[in-house]
């Protein structure tokens, strides 16, 4: 496989990542949202694998494997179990103003590309053009967290943001040191468990997973 093919494959995967981030932004069904999250993890794992193959960075194979295990298998499985137990599997969220959200999303992408331009120029990595895409998918996930009113989609947004950050790490620097990556993976896993506990606490207390019920604490 020649270098230019590799770059094209990675670019295509990056484009897919961004596309999935936009799809998540407009997805109303909780179940489909979780599936999209799993697809995003798969794309991430593939792109890490391709970078590892083309640059002969052995530790990247481990992180590709870790991503596959954690973000494609374990986390989606946990989320599936949770929504099954919480009985929200078929929940559909009413999202207002999808077009506006999309426009804001496009503005965020432009902003990210501009911010990343000076950084990309310095990079010697084969994937240097992708820092902008990584930042864009981080910010899109952030936007998704802001626009959602239900607990589960907010958490999926949180996890998707972590995907974007991971993509930034592999595209800008060939990945963080393995010890840091393991630490981050552990944090994300523990966070998901705690989120799970919270879902039950929230539902027990508020009778629904709608966060708009939680607006008592305000300064007036």
């Amino acid at each position: 496989m020649t270098m230019s093919y590799t770059i094209q494959i990675i670019n295509m995967l990056a484009a897919l990542l961004l596309l999935i981030a936009f799809a998540m932004l407009s997805q109303r069904r909780i179940l489909s949202l979780i599936n999209l999250f799993a697809w995003q993890g798969l794309v991430l794992s593939l792109s890490t694998f391709v970078v590892a193959y083309s640059t002969h960075q052995n530790h990247l194979y481990y992180s590709a494997g870790l991503t596959l295990l954690l973000k494609v298998l374990v986390l989606p499985w946990l989320l599936h179990r949770l929504i099954l137990k919480l009985n929200v599997k078929w929940d559909v969220e009413t999202l207002i103003n999808i077009p506006t959200t999309m426009l804001v999303g496009i503005a965020l992408v432009i902003f990210s590309f501009n911010l990343a331009a000076p950084i990309s120029q310095l990079s010697e990595s084969i994937t240097r053009g992708l820092i902008g895409i990584a930042l864009a998918s981080v910010l899109l996930s952030l936007l998704m967290m802001l626009t959602r009113r239900k607990a589960v989609p907010q958490v999926v947004g949180f996890l998707a943001m972590e995907n974007g950050l991971f993509f930034a790490a592999t595209s800008a620097t060939h990945g963080m040191p393995l010890v840091v990556e393991l630490g981050i993976a552990l944090d994300v896993l523990v966070a998901t468990f705690i989120f799970g506990i919270f879902f039950f606490q929230i539902r027990e207390t508020f009778d629904s997973l709608d966060i708009s019920n939680m607006e008592k604490l305000k300064d007036d």
């Binding site: 919270f198 207390t205 508020f206 607006e215 008592k216 604490l217």
Partner: peptide, 8 residues
């Protein structure tokens, strides 16, 4: 309810 909201 308030403490769960705060924690979230």
């Amino acid at each position: 309810p308030a403490s769960i909201e705060a924690a979230w």
